[in-house]
Write a protein that binds this DNA or RNA. Sequence first.
DNA 1: ACCTGAACACCGTTCAAGT
DNA 2: ACCTGAACACCGTTCAAGT
Lengths: 239, 239
Amino acid sequence: MVKPAAVPGRPRSRDAAGLPAVTPEKIISSALELTARHGLEGWTLRQLAGAVDAYPAVVYHHVGDREAVVSAVVERVIAVVPVPQADLPWREWFRILLADLRSVLTGYPGVARRLALYGATSTAAATIVDRGVRTLQAGGFGDEAPTVYRLLLNTACLFLSAEDEQHRNAALKERTGELLAEFRDDPDRPGLAAMGVALHDLLSDPERRLNYFADFYDYSVERCLDGVSSRLAVLGAAH
Amino acid sequence: MVKPAAVPGRPRSRDAAGLPAVTPEKIISSALELTARHGLEGWTLRQLAGAVDAYPAVVYHHVGDREAVVSAVVERVIAVVPVPQADLPWREWFRILLADLRSVLTGYPGVARRLALYGATSTAAATIVDRGVRTLQAGGFGDEAPTVYRLLLNTACLFLSAEDEQHRNAALKERTGELLAEFRDDPDRPGLAAMGVALHDLLSDPERRLNYFADFYDYSVERCLDGVSSRLAVLGAAH
DNA sequence: ACCTGAACACCGTTCAAGT
DNA sequence: ACCTGAACACCGTTCAAGT
């Protein structure tokens, strides 16, 4: 990881040292690996440079600034997300897409956040948007299809980004949870007590604790789909 | 803002210089101001120290590290959020809470994100949780009230955090929007084209553009409430 | 064109020393 | 106890100089 100190006898160019040339491809796949391991905000440009045995300036030369590397990583990740088959009913289509999205994005912490905030622009992303909106159009959402698409994808990516962050900063989240769990016997605040009990039960059962994020994600996605579904009924009744 | 360079004749203690003593209170309200202007991640500890005419180490002495200051700011902000009156039907109660939440949190960029990720632990926060969960219990959600509460608050805070971030990094968001808008005539990808048209219409109408975030927030909150509402019907039918 | 090596202007944090 | 002033170990980024 750490570059050896410059010594007088050391060759001063990569090929004199027998090192392969640095390429954008190598930089980006190293960044992808670092992201899988430490999250998108968990590595520094100096670490990335170290991973390809080069100086930070080399990253700038081949790819650009940190932002350029990050957006390349994001595009690579969405390219991996499978697109559900086209003839499914809209609800099923999105249920599958969002489940697959989770299983990919949890492997690359921080990518969900970028996706939620700025989206992606690659052809892979374009395909998902196209299929998604068409599925909603076919489902009867008409002009509201793009809005519904944004709602569903935003919700999914935002919840996943929260999950990433809470894993990263488990200590803080834990502390808040424990604090709330302490109120579980408060007779003056039955609502708070109910929340305390729910949180306590959740944290003390090892299995529920393990599935905490997955379960809450599924619940949230289902409620979002429910909401969109009842909106569809309103739209249908209007004409 | 900038401390004057140390000159030989300058008094070396605050009271010798006629400066009032630094207090935790002053530090935190300065941090609150800085957050209102630049966002929670938009100021540095050195800036905060400068705002109270002191050295960074003074902030450490009176409040603690950056994290301690940030969490104090978050608690101050939620204390400002009004709690809707207790006798409202659950849907109305949350509609009002989440609208008020938005009008407060948009004034303090970055706070929504913290709230979504780690919640708050002050008595002000506890009151909102208590009333919210009780309102849902009264509405018939039973044991699912805590989960529904978390879903609603999470959704609201996450959407608001996305809004904060997109305002902060308007350039990136703009670029993605324009890129998508370019596909509005693509005959091979009608779904993408529909998204392009929707985005184009949105960005070209000045009024819709201005209300973009507020409208999408309201839409998302309403769909979330719809989803929760149809879940309530399922729960009710079960017994 | 590609890479080296150092520098620049920042961060949050720590600490011995002064008052 | 409160504050000074400097230092430490980092960042991302830039750039002249080498090969």
